[in-house]
Write a protein that binds this DNA or RNA. Sequence first.
DNA 1: TATTGTTATACTCTATAACTATA
DNA 2: TATAGTTATAGAGTATAACAATA
Lengths: 177, 177
Amino acid sequence: MRAAGEKKVTTSAGRNELPTRAPRKRAGRGAARPDDADEVGLDALVGHAGYAVRRFQIWIFQDFVRTLASVDIRPTQYSVMTVIGANPGLSQMAVAKRLGIERARLVHLLDSLEGRKLVRRIKSKTDRRSHALHLTAQGGLSLAKFKQLAAEHERHVEEKIGKGNRERLLQILAGFT
Amino acid sequence: MRAAGEKKVTTSAGRNELPTRAPRKRAGRGAARPDDADEVGLDALVGHAGYAVRRFQIWIFQDFVRTLASVDIRPTQYSVMTVIGANPGLSQMAVAKRLGIERARLVHLLDSLEGRKLVRRIKSKTDRRSHALHLTAQGGLSLAKFKQLAAEHERHVEEKIGKGNRERLLQILAGFT
DNA sequence: TATTGTTATACTCTATAACTATA
DNA sequence: TATAGTTATAGAGTATAACAATA
């Protein structure tokens, strides 16, 4: 996973000539096999938005996990707590639909957050099938801390791709939120 | 998973006013609970590049799988075959490093592709620990077809976010490939 | 009948560790 | 001793199906 070691922290937005390496080439020694990873051409993958997005998503995900490691919160947990915090009383179905999480998966996520006393499931009076979700007092305080760390992570993103590019990215992808 | 049903195929690049919904609001009936998913505010998630990127990645991934369903090829399989096709004789380690795949995982991916007669592992003469990877004749023909379908998928992306935005996206993320 | 939360299953993917055969 | 490929395991995430309680 290249992202861990962190080379190329170029911090910027300067080098934008698509790296379309020649699809065929031979390595340094006598042999015809490029054992040096950077000599390996991507061919059609250059030009696929999905490939670039996947690599970026992996980087961003790992930076988030690393930055919030001290509080042991992962991106999905953060998104669930944020939505509950902003919309107290929401049902599990509503949270699942809003975040695009399977309702079956949300059950386990909430089990974990509830076990950590960050979230509470309260039986709904109006619809006894459903639960009203709330942050606990501790959950509210913790979320404030999580948001600080998440903002720090966001600054890492800014350093990585550049301030203007980050904003442009948010604009381009606004329709998917 | 919102993407399956497909609402908002707005095909474009027009609506870019960040949807910062008010963090608190009540639903239609007398109650105070927004059961309508679109009434639920995202709060801090708006403004996190990672959240938008994750949602976009899910959409793009699913469109790829759908578009290449007839040939039963997933994004990772496609990337592996493309790199082998462009760099015949590559070792497993070189492919794994280049694509950011764990070498342990690549073993299973290659087992599957080799079982389908698309790829062949050939024992290296120079280093008997390693395998030289090649597409079979059938694999080469198949890959051409996969590339056609992947290009079709790429057109879907273009329709979804707009031609200019897609190009800009590739530029912004070029450093991650 | 339909929906909410739940349990269960299967498969993909990430992250490790350990083993073997070579180097 | 280090590396390439392999096997194994654990957890996250996706995708389903089915069930009980309730609507």
